[in-house]
Design a protein around this nucleic acid. Structure first.
Length: 276
DNA sequence: AAGATTACCTGAAGGC
DNA sequence: TGCCTTCAGGTAATCT
């Protein structure tokens, strides 16, 4: 499941390989992933040059310059199973929905569950479509983040998953961050002191940076742009390890449901919700 | 305010 | 060439 580190790695690969290149062709096999329509995306972007790229949370914004000099943008969200490949000679399977051609360099969008979206944006690289998305988790200043999360009644895990407070964390890295911070996933920010909240943010940034360096986490089916798995999985402390021993204290890791998500935590290290 | 539910999709895994 | 159910979880929408 692509979260911030996986998206960051995809973005870096796109920028390194495609900056300055012109989108010369587009083949659509399943148009449902293109918004507002395959026709609109083709009309605006084919012939345009990729000039830059930004990531915010789990979104990528590809910057294009059209032949008439006007800017246009493609907002990409991989959701659960979206993948982007930059591969010469790659044979697309039935899950490849869009095939882009950048002056002979093929770029394929593959998405098993078809949840992801490639959205044409013409109102700037801070599109209205993501106006409700909070600051990036990796770069948000502690002061701003504290103001956004302080006093919340929902479980801290639900707050970390809320992309409107800060963006980028998904289920895997939330569980990892809370474990490292020694905070129970059901603890409520309103009950937590500032130092504890700061520690949660510090640990979240730490785990995100580490995961980026290791090429992301491959759990179900994330691979990088060359089809290679990320190798952060072996670093995971709790996610996917329910029933196994905590690597720090030896207690049996428990699994509960928080905010509708499978949640793994260590009852020894992360204590009780009220203690946080 | 926030939980529950549903929708969007497919594949893996497990029960029988 | 098994069938069925459940689970995986990012996000939006809807209901309570």
């Amino acid at each position: 499941m692509p979260e911030l580190p996986e998206v960051e790695n995809v973005g870096r690969a796109l920028l390194e390989n495609l900056r300055g290149r012109r989108l010369t062709g587009m083949t659509v096999r399943f148009g449902g992933v293109l918004e507002p329509s395959p026709r609109a995306v083709r009309r605006v972007l084919v012939g345009a040059r990729l000039t830059d790229l930004h990531r915010r949370g789990k979104y990528l914004i590809l910057h294009f310059e059209r032949q008439d000099g006007k800017p246009a943008y493609l907002m990409v969200h991989l959701r659960m199973t979206g993948q982007i490949f930059i591969l010469d000679g790659y044979i697309p399977d039935n899950h490849v929905h869009v095939m882009l051609d950048f002056e002979g360099l093929p770029v394929h969008y593959r998405d098993i569950r078809k949840f992801g979206r490639l959205t044409l944006v013409e109102d700037g690289y801070q599109p209205a479509a993501m106006a409700h998305i909070g600051p990036d988790m990796l770069t948000v200043r502690p002061r701003e983040w504290l103001e956004r999360i302080a006093g919340r009644l929902a479980p801290v895990k639900a707050c970390l998953l809320d992309q409107g407070i800060a963006s980028g964390l998904g289920n895997i890295y939330v569980d990892e961050s809370l474990f490292l911070a020694r905070v129970h996933p059901l603890a409520r920010p309103i009950d937590m002191d500032e130092a504890t909240l700061r520690e949660v943010l510090r640990r979240a940034k730490q785990v995100l940076r580490l995961a980026i360096r290791h090429g992301g986490t491959t759990f179900m089916n994330f691979t990088n742009f060359r089809g290679r798995p990320g190798n952060f999985r072996r670093k995971l402390r709790v996610y996917g390890r329910a029933g196994q021993e905590c690597r720090d204290c030896g207690a049996t890791l428990e699994k509960i449901t928080v905010a509708g998500r499978g949640t793994v935590f260590c009852p020894g290290c992360q204590g009780e919700p009220g203690e946080a």
